[in-house]
Each structure stands twice: as C-alpha cells, then as structure tokens.
C-alpha cells in the first residue's frame, strides 16, 4: 500500500458526523405539517378575500343602484363600533377555525394515527 492509495482511501471516507436515526421521518412529519398549515391558511385567505370582495360589490351596488345614504351607514357604524367590530371578529374567527384550525388538528391527529 503506498501513499497515494492511503490518500485515496482517506478521501472516500466520510467525515464522522451523524444524524439521528429517525431524521427522515421526523423531518417529513415536520414539513408535512408546515405544508398543511400553509395550504389551509392560503385557502382561508382566499375565502376571506372572496367574502370581502362580495361585500364590497354589494355595498357598491347599494350606493349606486339603491341610493343608500352613506352618512347614515357611517353614523351607524361609528355609534355601534364595538358591536360591528365584535361581529366581524367572530365571523373571521369562525372562518379561521373552520378552514384552518380544525382541518389542521384533524390532519395532525390522522398523522398520529398513521404513525
């Protein structure tokens, strides 16, 4: 055995670093959860966008075609600000729970069953 051969042998020997035995499994699980969460959240934002869009179009129609009085609407919103904000908040939270949280927890529990 000569110097070159020894060198070649050393060069094809990996550095002695290690990963945990279940590295691939735990990473796949982690990434799967991340992917699911992002997917559900994206869908929630799409739903929210569509609902907001429909609301804006409806309000615009009310003003353009039905001569709604914007001053009256504005006064109503200002005088009932906590109520209006609260209802909107609850509706958004319900949508978020339905589209993201519940689906995510079901996903997590199903992954738990599989593993």
């Amino acid at each position: 055995m000569d110097c070159e051969k020894l060198l070649d042998e050393a060069l094809i020997t990996g550095p002695g670093y290690t990963l945990s035995d279940n590295f691939a499994d735990s990473l796949a699980l982690k990434v799967g959860r991340k992917f699911a969460w992002e997917q559900y959240f994206k869908e929630f934002l799409i739903y929210l966008g569509v609902i907001l869009g429909i609301s804006i179009v409806s309000v615009a129609m009310a003003f353009i075609w039905y001569d709604a009085n914007w001053q009256e609407w504005f006064n109503f919103i200002i005088s009932n600000l906590p109520l209006v904000t609260g209802i909107n908040f609850i509706l958004i939270f319900i949508l978020f729970t339905d589209r993201v949280l519940l689906r995510y927890f079901f996903y997590k529990s199903s992954m738990g069953t599989i593993n």
């Binding site: 550095p15 670093y17 290690t18 590295f23 691939a24 990473l27 796949a28 699980l29 992917f35």
Partner: peptide, 28 residues
C-alpha cells in the same frame, strides 16, 4: 403533497447533505 415521497427524498440524499454540511461547518 405526497409526504412519503418527501421522506424518500430525505432518506436518499441525507448522506450527501450530511457530508457537505459536516465538511463545511465541522460542528456536530
């Protein structure tokens, strides 16, 4: 979204990644 495919990719390439990262970073 096939999680098993990603697991397969990680298993297939973890040695390569470990060698590159290990040789550059040198901290277990």
């Amino acid at each position: 979204g096939n999680n098993n495919a990603f697991r397969f990719l990680v298993s297939k390439h973890e040695r390569l990644v470990l060698h590159v990262v290990g040789r550059v970073v040198q901290r277990q």
